[in-house]
Amino acid sequence: MSDNKKALSEDKKALSDNKKALSEEKLSMAESSTQMNELDKQLAQWQSAYKDATPSVDTDALIKETKSARFKLKLKGAVDLVLGLAVSMWCLTLVLFEPLSTYQFLLFIVLTPIPAAFGAWGYWVRQKQWKVQTLDVQSMLAFKQNQLKQQLHYWKISLYGCLALWCGLLALAVFNVLMFNAFTLWGTQLLINSVVVFIVYRRYKKLAADLPSALAKIDDMK
C-alpha cells in the first residue's frame, strides 16, 4: 500500500514536471514566434525601404543608349571581321597575281589565313559572350578566375615569343656586325626590341604578382 502511494506520488511529480516542461516549451515557442514575427516585420520594413530607395531611371533614354551601345558593339565586331577578311584577301591577291620570290610566296601563303581566322574567332567569341552573363554567380566567378589565369598564361607565351625573336635578332645582329660592320642599324633594332621585351616582362611580372590577390578577392565573393 505504501509502495503504491509512493509510486502515485512519483507519477504526480513526473506529471507536474511534464506540465512544467510543456509550459516552458510553450513559452519558448511563443518567444520564438514573437521573434519570428519581429524578424518578418523587420524584413517587411526593409523590403519597403529597399523599394523606396529605387534610383530614378529615364527608361526611354536608357533604351536609346542601350540600342546605340548594342549597335556600336555589333559594328565593332563586323569591322574586325571585315578587316581580317580584307587583309587575308590582300595576301591572297599577292600570292595569286604578283610575281613573288619563293621566300615571299611561302611567307604570304602562311600569313593569308591568319587575319581571317583571327577575325572569325573574335566574332565567334563576341557572339558567345552573352552566355557568361546567364551563368549562376558562382560559375561566373569561377569563369572570371579562369580568365585571369589564362591572361597570365598568354602574357607568359608572349614573353617567350618576344625573347625568342630577340635571340634571333641578336644572332643576326652579331652576324651582320661581324661580317659587314653594320653596327648602327642592328644595334638600334636590338635596342628597340629590348624595350619591347622589357615592357612585356614587366607586364607579366606585374600580372603574376597581382594574380593571387585578385583570385583571393574573387574567392571572397563566393
Binding site: V57, I63, T66, A69, L73, Q127, K131, Q133, T134
Partner: peptide, 16 residues
C-alpha cells in the same frame, strides 16, 4: 552600370 546591365540583358535575351 545600369546601361551595362541593360545591354547584357538584351544580348542574353536575344542569344537565348
Amino acid at each position: 552600370l545600369i546601361q551595362e546591365m541593360s545591354l547584357a540583358v538584351w544580348r542574353a535575351f536575344e542569344g537565348a
